[in-house]
């Protein structure tokens, strides 16, 4: 049984590797039969990537983008968790804020970005606000769901033993929300970094989005792809070395 399971696991891994190479191969074939400028070979893209890395440009812009992702992520999570808990616990808050939330959920990201730039100027703060506002409603919806499904029985235990308010919140209440917080964080990072690029493209003078805009002006597809690869790799690392460990920590008691 176990042996079989192991075998099928290996087999599935093999399929994954093969699929990756198939994609690579497919790309190379298309690149061969089409214009090298609009559809460059992966080899050339990687060469460009190395050049960009070696002159330091790429790391600077990558750093700027990550910084914006990080700040917006923190703000969106904190505000979203706070409001989500309020809305999940108090019906009046929920009734009052629900329509706002639906409205914000449905405003296109682009509109929020442009309005933010118009109202707050082409500034860093405007950029951060625009990104956060795009994410907050999603966080709220997820956390509210969690807050509604809180196990009151455990809170009664805190009440009986006259546990302090802070302890009650951080030990009895918040851990019940961890799965929801992690779900929100997961979806959050994925959405935020995509929006940050648009924000940079529209009104910042550095960051990956800005660079892609610049390359677009020169139809420099190789560089666009090089930056994309670099960025995707960074985000995958973030998932593996930040979100995954966080999730494992929060789930350590689920055997």
């Amino acid at each position: 049984m176990i042996n079989n399971k192991l075998k099928s696991k290996k087999y599935l891994f093999l399929i994954k590797v093969l699929s990756f190479f198939a994609l690579f191969l497919f790309w190379e074939i298309v690149s061969l039969i089409s214009n090298q400028n609009t559809f460059p070979s992966i080899i050339n893209v990687l060469k460009t990537l190395l050049i960009e890395i070696s002159d330091g440009e790429l790391f600077f812009h990558l750093g700027m983008t990550l910084y914006r992702v990080f700040i917006s992520f923190i703000i969106a999570m904190l505000v979203g968790i706070f409001v989500g808990i309020l809305m999940g616990n108090y019906r009046r808050f929920d009734a009052f804020l629900d329509s706002w939330n639906i409205l914000f959920l449905n405003i296109p990201a682009l509109v929020l970005i442009i309005l933010s730039y118009i109202w707050f100027g082409l500034t860093e703060i405007a950029a951060i606000i625009a990104v956060s506002l795009n994410k907050i409603p999603n966080v709220i919806v997820t956390i509210r769901e969690g807050a509604k499904s809180i196990d009151r029985n455990l809170l009664q235990v805190a009440l009986i033993y006259k546990v302090s308010k802070t302890k009650k919140f951080f030990v009895f209440y918040l851990p019940q929300l961890y799965p929801y917080i992690i779900a929100a964080a997961r979806g959050g990072i994925a959405l935020i970094w995509k929006i940050v690029l648009v924000v940079e493209l529209l009104g910042r003078s550095n960051g990956v989005g800005f660079k892609i805009h610049e390359f677009f002006q020169f139809f420099d597809i190789k560089s666009i792809l090089a930056y994309t690869i670099a960025f995707v790799v960074v985000m995958i690392f973030l998932e593996l070395f930040f979100l995954k460990p966080l999730e494992n920590y929060a789930r350590k008691w689920r055997i």
Binding site: V157, W253, R254
Partner: peptide, 27 residues
């Protein structure tokens, strides 16, 4: 409010994210 009280319920109502020692110490 002035007396110490304990309550044992039909199900144990332990906090699943705390280990045995922490579950006792938390109160």
């Amino acid at each position: 409010d002035d007396i110490r009280i304990a309550y044992m319920f039909q199900n144990s109502r332990l906090l699943p994210w705390l280990n045995v020692l922490e579950n006792v110490e938390v109160v």
